[in-house]
Design a binder for these strands. Structure first.
Lengths: 256, 256
DNA sequence: GTTTGATTGTGTTATTATGACACAATGTAA
DNA sequence: TTACATTGTGTCATAATAACACAATCAAAC
């Protein structure tokens, strides 16, 4: 089926497949080159960008829907994913679209479930940047990572959703060793620290940080050191999965 | 309009007023006689009890809907209320009803939006027990407070919703001085401590508890003492609203 | 080859927060 | 007047945290 035809069908008949009035928006965090990043889609119907999102099949668990949507956008299967907030303002999506776009597709705005009010469930995901293969969706012409500090204009209330997710991530940091989901298998202590600093938005003392992280017991130091650095080579670490899981259950207390 | 007629209309035409597939369930916490309590409704269509809940008007903010629902059940206007989780299992409400009840009302199950799948947004509320006037809803024949430790059988997944709310409340305790919402204007230190102990489900040291609470600066000791106790009379305290709000913004760190 | 610069690994100390604990004071009831 | 239950307050040992310094090592510059 041609893309235009698919879009048309989605606008006119999507409500036969999906629950009306409810959507899911995902804030996908990644970490690369010492920067926290978020995955965004370039909408084809406006100059703005959007969070990857989608809808819930009539008999699908909301969590499953979020997983499915994420899988389609990132190719990733088992990722850290959880709901963090519901956005239920009736005016949240009543913003201006590009009418030309819909005219071209032959869609009348009062004719489609897609222009109804939507309540959106926000999910946030932490992914290993290096393993993601971004794929735009039907309504997007591109898919890119953006530095958190450098996010473009977003549609609807997506900016607010992103900010809420970020706040939530900061809170989580003390309970959840989020590094496991955001970093590759092996990583150095400075890299891990940089991740924490980026999320929290503040500098941390190198030595105290190391002590606290080590004390949790969730890390395992490898014998290997990083090669090719113009200074003392840092050790690689990886997460000790068994201790990591224990710590999760115990609800690791942890202040930075 | 007669109740039966109202119910009938709700089942057959409610979807003209409300969003389909989405509901709100409220966990209303109160504190009385040194016990944490929750407000429940006795369903008229089964032997079970239910959380007070309702639906979202087509142009209503979800938060407003929760407020409205709560106002109708408790008579209270300005209460501490917030969403804590979305329950999105497609099977969550596919449980057995009392068919007799619906037959009596002349409602066919495949004929009403009310038997569709619902995604429910959980809101929890902390209220001053002494100010609540419980009012059952259209589908309930009663409305009562239950001790948290002594909750009867609940419909659907309401037990799980309640438990999730309770967990959330425990987490909140460290960030939010919840006492303000659950206690009357003036209260004694032992009463406040008992509240914390009940929510956390563990005993706290009397002297350490007092020190920490006092150190936050959110309390103001009155000159008045409690009368009519067969032992040393405890002082009354009230919340220092200005410091309380400051502490909220600063995100009071606080471990028990 | 030696030096330089940047960065890592590690340990000490002062300060603060926490948990465990004891005794004097007070109001009613016996 | 005494007994009892419960409150108000303070101390001390221990644990957690923040601030801080120096030696080791790698690549690049000379």
């Amino acid at each position: 089926m041609k893309p235009d035809k698919k879009i048309n069908e989605h606008f006119l008949k999507g409500d036969e497949k999906y629950l009306r009035h409810i959507s899911i928006d995902c804030v996908v965090f990644g970490f690369h080159e010492n920067e926290l990043k978020v995955l965004l889609l370039k909408t084809s119907y406006s100059a703005k960008w959007a969070l990857p999102g989608g809808f819930i099949l009539k008999k699908e668990h909301t969590d499953e829907a979020a997983k499915r949507i994420l899988k389609e956008r990132t190719g990733l299967d088992k990722i850290y994913l959880q709901q963090f907030h519901v956005f239920g303002d009736p005016g949240r999506s009543n913003r201006k679209f590009n009418d030309e776009y819909f005219k071209k597709l032959g869609i009348k705005k009062d004719n489609s479930w897609m222009f109804d009010r939507f309540i959106s469930i926000g999910y946030d995901a932490l992914v290993d940047f290096t393993k993601v293969h971004p794929v735009p969706d039907l309504f997007s012409e591109g898919c890119e990572w953006f530095k958190i500090s450098d996010v473009p204009a977003l549609i609807f209330d997506h900016k607010k959703i992103l900010e809420t997710a970020l706040q939530d991530l900061r809170l989580q940091l003390n309970f959840h060793p989020v590094g496991y989901n955001l970093l590759p298998l092996k990583f150095t202590m400075p890299e891990l620290q940089k991740l924490y600093e980026t999320i929290l938005g503040k500098k941390l003392d190198r030595r105290n940080f190391q002590r606290k992280i080590i004390d949790t017991g969730i890390l395992k130091r490898l014998d290997e050191t990083k090669k090719g650095v113009a200074h003392k080579a840092p050790f690689y670490y990886k997460f000790d999965l068994s201790n990591y899981k224990k710590a999760l259950k115990a609800g690791m207390g942890f202040e930075l």
